[in-house]
């Protein structure tokens, strides 16, 4: 199988708090891969490790055969042109309108004439259904529109890898369906590789080609949606069915026992 991203024996910690311990996983080219797991297990951290914004304690992240964390600063920046990330909060530039937001990466990285940029931006906006909102400022957009505008910006330069960080959080069911369909169509029509971080299990399993469940510093399970649904692993079952009691701890870890603390 052809993998775009390969992560080997990756360990990462914030100070004393260990986020990952010897995690290995692969992201196949041209497919939608989902990272699922309870909140606070560092799924976003994984995306930022792939993007080279964080440096692991040990292990390696290979993007298309290049070790992301061995690159010099300029090389890392040129590698990032091939990937793109959709942030949880949208992260549109608040001082630019939607059109200029989408045009921003194009203007930064190319010397195309303004008419060409205009056509490109309108195409991207049309793809997410926001051509009519080109003149609006980010604060005039609803949450769902902001996500879509960010999506248009992320695909502006036709990246190879696009990483979605919690794209469905706080969206109504219709917007969610729209976003799901967008992710799927974009992935197919643009030949992208997509990584979706989410805890909306049932939704993402309808479009994902492959899924990983991350919990407590480890990859608990990985497989196609069908494999995961059939899995006997109690941790997988707990997560997919959304049961409150099970082997995956709900409480924040503590060193002192409850009895002693009282």
């Amino acid at each position: 199988m052809n993998n775009l991203v390969e992560i080997k024996d990756l360990s990462f910690s914030y100070g004393k708090r260990i986020i990952y311990e010897n995690v290995s996983l692969e992201i196949p080219k041209g497919k939608i891969t989902a990272f699922m797991g309870p909140s606070g297990t560092g799924k976003t951290t994984m995306l930022r490790l792939i993007g080279g914004q964080l440096v692991p304690d040990s292990g390696s992240v290979m993007f298309d055969g290049i070790n992301v964390h061995k690159l010099s600063r300029p090389d890392l920046y040129s590698l990032r042109r091939r990937m793109s990330m959709l942030f949880q909060s949208g992260a549109l530039f608040t001082d630019l309108n939607v059109f200029d937001n989408v045009a921003y990466p194009i203007r930064e990285h190319t010397k195309l004439p303004e008419e060409v940029i205009r056509d490109m931006v309108l195409m991207k906006l049309e793809a997410v259904g926001l051509r009519g909102a080109a003149g609006l400022m980010p604060h005039e957009l609803s949450g769902g529109m902001a996500r879509r505008a960010t999506l248009a910006r992320s695909i502006a330069l036709d990246p190879e890898l696009i990483m979605y960080d919690e794209p469905f959080t706080g969206q109504d069911p219709i917007t969610m369906a729209v976003l799901l369909r967008l992710i799927k169509t974009l992935n197919r029509t643009l030949g992208l590789t997509s990584v979706v971080v989410t805890h909306d299990v049932s939704e993402i399993l309808t479009i994902a080609d492959y899924a990983y469940i991350l919990a407590g510093t480890k990859v608990v399970a990985g497989g196609t949606p069908e494999e995961l649904k059939k899995s006997d692993d109690p941790r997988v079952r707990q997560f997919i069915k959304g049961e409150y009691d099970g082997p995956v701890p709900f409480n924040y870890p503590t060193e002192v026992s409850y009895l002693k603390d009282l």
């Binding site: 993007g51 914004q53 040129s78 990032r80 793109s84 942030f87 949208g90 930064e108 990285h109």
Partner: peptide, 22 residues
């Protein structure tokens, strides 16, 4: 600070635009 809080600086970095320079 607000640009940082709303992840605008991070997203610039991921767009391969160095926020320090820009």
């Amino acid at each position: 600070g607000l640009k940082k809080a709303t992840e605008q600086l991070l997203s610039m970095e991921m767009m391969a635009v160095d926020p320090l320079r820009r």
